[in-house]
Nucleic acid binder design. Structure first.
Length: 304
DNA sequence: CCTATTTGACCCCG
DNA sequence: CGGGGTCAAATAGG
């Protein structure tokens, strides 16, 4: 068992780290050439980051696995809270949940994860290959900038528990500290840095520098998904750079993120590598048996 | 109409 | 008790 994990670990290291190394080399070459577009260079940087993040995540999960391999899996905490269903407290009377007073019910009945696999990076690039959906933002006590909370877009469709937090670093402008928590269990072929099926939506967080002078913080996070021709053109990736703009009361437009996963998710196990799927599936916190009902059903809501 | 973001309320835990 | 993470109503935008 232990040897198996070691073998997998080595495999992962080979795969992800070597890939990261190759990408880094490419990036270096790109940067040394003056004339070339910087967009591709930054794209590469994002991919490199993603590759290493993946490797770290996988290794981390393996460590968790092997530490609790046989005896007690006390360290596994990813499972959902079950006792919170409706044991002690009755829900509200069923209706009138509108806005009358404090909202009661099972709100906040979540399990706070203690120590799932978590790592933090600092980067000016808010972009990665996953699909995130913002679900919250908070002012942090000693921090100048608020923190934004994201969850995987496929949380409910596929039960993916990955989340991420983004907060602007106050020391260096244009830097963000990005904390990833949990590994993706969703099968997104967009997560593959393989071919240029990359759809880079570049995120842009603009945060207000003021403390709290107006009740409406103009914190906006735009996910701009640019025109990626799924044409196999050579210049596959045209990605715009996340430029950090501090705007105060500018109005902002945001494109809603589009998910181009049309249909082939059922067969999407192709390149993702059985290793990753296997390991993530083994990752412990995977108690959904009924989430298979939730067919992939991506929001292909084009022209209903 | 739909889905994503905003934003204040709510809840857990130190 | 309060900070920080999450929920969900309201809103924005297609």
């Amino acid at each position: 068992m232990d040897t198996t994990n070691k073998a997998i670990k080595l495999k992962v290291m080979n795969h992800q780290l070597v890939e990261g190394h190759e990408l880094a080399t490419k990036l270096q070459q790109l940067l040394s050439q003056p004339g070339l577009g910087q967009g591709s260079a930054e794209d590469l940087a994002a991919k490199i980051l993603e590759t290493f993040n993946k490797a770290i995540s996988i290794l981390d999960s393996i460590e968790h696995l092997s530490s609790s391999s046989s005896s007690s899996l006390a360290a596994v905490e990813g499972s959902q809270n079950a006792s919170c269903d409706n044991d002690g407290k009755f829900e509200d009377s069923g209706d009138s949940r509108k806005r009358l007073g404090p909202v009661k019910g099972k709100r906040g009945c979540y399990k706070r994860k203690k120590r799932s696999e978590t790592w933090t990076t600092q980067s000016p690039i808010l972009e990665d290959t996953f699909f995130w959906r913002k679900y919250g933002q908070k002012e942090i006590l000693n921090a100048k900038f608020p923190r934004s909370y994201f969850r995987c877009t496929h949380k409910y469709t596929q039960g993916c528990k990955a989340t991420k937090q983004v907060q602007k670093v106050e020391l260096e402008p244009g830097m963000f500290s990005i904390t990833y928590m949990g590994s993706h269990t969703c099968n997104t072929n967009a997560a593959i840095p393989k071919v240029n099926a990359c759809d880079n939506h570049h995120d842009e967080i603009t945060m207000d520098m003021e403390e709290h002078k107006s009740p409406s913080l103009t914190t906006s996070m735009k996910e701009e998904e640019e025109n990626h021709r799924h044409h196999g053109s050579s210049t596959g990736n045209n990605l715009v750079w996340p430029e950090i703009v501090f705007e105060e009361d500018h109005h902002h437009h945001h494109h809603h993120q589009a998910i181009y996963v049309s249909g082939d998710t059922s067969t999407s196990i192709n390149v993702l590598g059985s290793q990753e799927l296997m390991m993530f599936g083994d990752g412990g916190d995977f108690e959904f048996s009924d989430n298979e009902h939730y067919a992939i059903f991506n929001s292909c809501s084009n022209l209903s």
